[in-house]
Every structure is written in structure tokens, then in C-alpha cells.
Design a binder for these strands. Structure first.
Lengths: 299, 299
DNA sequence: TAGTCGCCATACATTTTCGTATGACCATCA
DNA sequence: TGATGGTCATACGAAAATGTATGGCGACTA
């Protein structure tokens, strides 16, 4: 491998990304702390070097061409890697310090992780945790995050993966709702109730629907793809919905419906890139998450 | 996301990588086409910016610190992404042109792909294919390659994956060997023969050994982890080894031993990053590989 | 319709970065 | 032990990149 193979300054890619994000040369210049003509020159240089027109200029701003949009993901990968490198460098000194970027789903991140992270913060005050909550699986290989809590087993060899256990799910409803509408005694009864469900059909939803045909889009009284909103709806007594047993168990007003028939359970995996194996901060965070999640799953 | 969050010039990462690769400032300067003091300045600047010592200087060269080695993978990711961006830009014009980087195992790359690529080259003379042959799974997410031919199903949602079929494997030996040592009529007979096998125990070997206990490390007369060498050994009449049926079938002097008992078969997958879906060159290459491999698997 | 505010492009001065030349040091070998 | 070829560090002039100031243009508003 020869490093020089691409003799395009990497600096150009960064300003390219800035312009793409801000939509104008001046905007990018402001956000990056450089002068507007410099940004313009960088874009020109990149266009010349690549032989591709990246933006259609107008006096109201710059419109990215298709080519620019096609190239954006690559520049974003560079950005992620640069950010990850910087994080890794921070924690390079002695002792536990620096920033670790953790990604998880919204439910896990809002309901489960806070106490775990609080304890971690307590033990290691110099450690900063960046929590990225999204249902889109962030890419550890692309360095979008250092550690991921995910519901699927990763198959990448470059990833260190540990299964923390299985999170049981169950139908739940608020006492108030059940007092008013009665408690279903069988799965068939569910059809008579206000069900809280999903809008778009994700792989998980498909699996759930297969196991419980009642769990169908048409039977839902409220549909939302936001998991936290589903929990909030259950808590508000809107109807019957699926949520994690452990989360529901905290609220004494929530009742587990049809306890025997657990619809599905979520295998939970903790994942980290193997490059970070020797990074003390990441290791500490990984171990804390592992223990905390295990305690959560099997108290 | 704020681009400026890392106000370290990306240029510095590139020279850092160059120094890491060459092991000296002067070497990196030569390979990158810049002057040695410039390289030195970049390293100094990066060390100051990161607050980390990257190299221990000596007059015989530079020795990377642990920190530098820990940060290298991130810089390599940036490098891969930059190279991929450049490839993507090349093929951005009209018509099929530019460079597509394909990765595959050595066996596939040497025995199966050449005719497919020759035909592709014929139809699209302006298309260049970079063929990276390695048994290490190159990372499509990390942009080390555009298209991968692999024996495992990828589980990443960001990847477009198509199964091209199953490549049957079988025990094979050269006629010359069989004339001399006889043809085994049962699996048990294999123990009396010179078996060509693996040295290190990979997941695949483990699976094979489970199905065929004879296929054990201790029974091997020749051990090599190089698949192509195994085929060459079979061809040279060294003994009995496992190789793809289709490859063996080309050589009339190779005999399939115990034809009924196919030890294992390899599911073959063609994979591409979804970002490249609209890249005409990658699409054409992907389709050509798909068709070519399918034809190869089921003629 | 006149005014304001945003944008990009250009010209010129400035700063920064880079390259050349050189010196000091170490390893190797005759 | 002296010569050679490699390394990195430093000093200074050259080149390149940047920043400032300005002009022109379009969109929006009163």
C-alpha cells in the first residue's frame, strides 16, 4: 500500500463535508472557523482533483450535485474515524480518562443505562461518556461509536461481542385502563382491546406478528415507531402494548397481561471494536456496561 | 454534528500514517513526495494537538509508541475511505469507467474470477478492477473494498448481499497417487492415506473435523494454511485433500474420492455496500460477478 | 420600488507552510 | 579508526495557502 496513491489533501475532504452540511460556502466557513474564500478554493481544488462537479453554484447558496451526495458517505467515514482517533488519543494517558462513545437504542439508553453510567461516572470522574441513542444500528467498524448495546448478535470478526442475556418482553397495560376495560384472559381477547403497536414493519415486528397474529397493524389503536412513546402510552393508560418486563415492573401501576405468553425476548449484545481492546477507558466502560446490564437482566 | 469539533488538520493524519509505514521521517517524506522537515513538523503538530507522544526519536529512525500503534487503525480507516471516495469519483461520469476494488479468497480469485473479469473487461474496456486476494475478510464498511466475494453471509444491514449458490467440496487426489496407493473405498480408509490438511484450526476446519473426525490435524501428512498450496499439492500427487469440485473437475487427472460423502459445502455470498448501489461501475461489476459465479456454481 | 441581507467571486496583503541547505549524530564496514 | 550512508534537527528564503476588503448579484421585505 502506498499512502501517496491519493495525492488529494485530506483537508479538502473535510471542507467538502462542511459545505455539504451547511449548504453554503459562507456557512461552512463560519462553522469551521476559516474564511469563505478558502472554502471556495478548497471546493474548487477538490472538483479539479476529482474531475467531478460537486456543487452547482448560485448566489443563494450551493446545491450539491448527485456526485457530491454519492461521495458524502465516504467523507463521513473519514470524519467518524478522525473523531474516533481523537477520542482514543484522549484516553491514551495513564489512568481512566477521555471520552467513550456509546450507542444504544432509545429505550435502553433512557431506561436502563443511566444508573449504570452514573455509577461508572462515580468511580471514574475523569471519564466522559457520549451517549448516542438511535434505533439505527451505528457502525462500530465505521467508528461511529466505540461501544454498542444492540439486540442482534454481530457477525463481524473484528468485533468483540458479549451476550449480556435476554431481555424478556411482555404485554402490559396500566391499572386504570384495565379497571375500565377489563383484563384479557386469552390472546384472542386482545382483539377487543386498544393495542399500542408499530407503524412500519421492521424485522422485529414481523417476527412478533408471526408469533402473535393478533399483533397486526390493523388491530392497533395507536401506532408509533417511537419505542419510548409506546412505553409512555402504556403508562398513560392508552391501551395494551409490548414492553420490557423489567421496565414495566418498576411501575406498580403497570400490569403484565397474560404472563405466561411471553411474545418475544430480546437477546442483548454488548459490542466493541477489537482495536479498542487495549484502550483502558473503553475497557472499563465495556466491563461496567456488561456487569450493569447483566445485573439488570438477571437481578 | 459539528465538523469543526476536531480542529486537527486531516492532513496530519495522512503524514502520521506515512511515518508509521516507513518508520522514518525521511522515508515517509520520500514516499509521499514532500520534504523531510515537513513530515517532522506534521508529526510535532499532531503530537501537540493530541497531547500524546507518537514516536520516540532516534537518529536511526523513529520508533512508534504504543499510543501511535493504537491510533493507527483509525488513520487506516481514513485512508481506506479516502481511497474509496476517489474510486467512487472516478466512476461518477457517464458510462462505465473507473476503478472497482474487489476482494475474494485466493482460491476464488485465482481459479474462478479471472474468466469472469476477462469477460467484464471485454464489455467495459474503461473499467479497471482491483483484485485483492486475502483470506482475511476485508471490511466493506471500512471501505477496504467495494465488492466482496465471501463464504459467509454478512449480517450488516448496510450491505447488499446476494447468495450466488453453494460451492460443493470433495476429497480429491491425483490419478498418479491413487495408482500407487490405491483408492480408499470408505472414510475409514482415509486414515491409511497421506492427507493434505490445515495447520491452524479455523472455524471452517473445526466444522469439517466435526463432520469427519478423520480430518484431524494428527492425520495430516502435509499441513498448510494456504489453500492454493493445498490444491497444488493435490495436483502434484502428494495425497488426498479437500478442494472445490468444480475446480478439480477441470483437471481430468484429478479424481473425486468417495463421491457420495461431500464433506462440506461453501455458501458463497456477493456483497457490496449500499452506498454504491447507484454507482454504475460497481453495479455492473456486481452483476457480472453474480452471473459469472452463478454460472460457475450451477453450470 | 428602494433597501437590506444573504450569498459568491475577485484582488491584494499577510501569514503560514513548505523546501533547500546544512549541521550533528549514530551505525556499519573497510 | 576513518569513511560512508543513513538518520533527525535547525535556519532561512521561497512558495503556497490564507485572510481581509470589496464588488456584484439575487431574494426578500417594507
Amino acid at each position: 500500500m502506498t499512502i501517496n496513491n491519493t495525492d488529494i489533501g485530506w483537508e479538502l475532504y473535510r471542507t467538502f463535508l462542511g459545505v455539504l452540511e451547511e449548504g453554503s460556502l459562507s456557512g461552512a466557513a463560519r462553522s469551521m472557523g476559516i474564511a469563505q474564500p478558502t472554502v471556495g478554493r478548497h471546493v474548487d481544488a477538490l472538483e479539479t482533483a476529482l474531475g467531478v462537479t460537486l456543487f452547482t453554484r448560485s448566489q443563494t447558496g450551493l446545491l450539491p450535485t448527485e456526485a457530491a451526495l454519492a461521495l458524502q458517505p465516504f467523507a463521513l467515514t473519514m470524519y467518524s474515524a478522525a473523531a474516533a482517533l481523537k477520542r482514543a488519543a484522549e484516553s491514551q494517558g495513564s489512568g481512566i480518562q477521555g471520552t467513550v462513545r456509546v450507542t444504544a437504542s432509545e429505550v435502553i439508553g433512557q431506561e436502563v443505562l443511566p444508573p449504570i453510567l452514573a455509577k461508572l461516572q462515580d468511580t471514574h470522574p475523569d471519564l466522559t461518556v457520549e451517549l448516542v441513542l438511535t434505533n439505527r444500528v451505528q457502525d462500530l467498524l465505521q467508528r461511529e461509536a466505540d461501544i454498542a448495546v444492540r439486540m442482534t448478535q454481530p457477525r463481524q470478526e473484528q468485533l468483540i461481542a458479549r451476550c449480556v442475556g435476554v431481555m424478556p418482553l411482555g404485554f402490559h397495560a396500566h391499572k386504570r385502563y384495565l379497571d375500565k376495560h377489563g383484563t384479557p384472559s386469552s390472546l384472542a381477547d386482545l382483539a377487543q382491546h386498544a393495542l399500542i403497536g408499530f407503524d412500519e414493519e421492521t424485522p422485529f415486528v414481523r417476527a412478533a406478528r408471526k408469533a402473535f397474529p393478533i399483533w397486526n397493524r390493523e388491530n392497533f389503536a395507536v401506532r408509533t415507531d417511537n419505542d419510548m412513546a409506546q412505553i409512555a402510552l402504556i403508562r398513560a393508560g392508552c391501551g395494551i402494548g409490548v414492553c420490557q418486563m423489567h421496565i414495566a415492573a418498576r411501575d406498580l401501576n403497570l400490569v403484565n397481561i397474560l404472563p405466561g405468553s411471553i411474545p418475544l425476548s430480546l437477546e442483548t449484545w454488548l459490542t466493541m471494536h477489537e482495536d479498542l481492546r487495549n484502550n483502558p477507558s473503553c475497557k472499563v466502560t465495556f466491563d461496567a456496561l456488561l456487569k450493569g446490564l447483566q445485573d439488570y437482566v438477571t437481578p
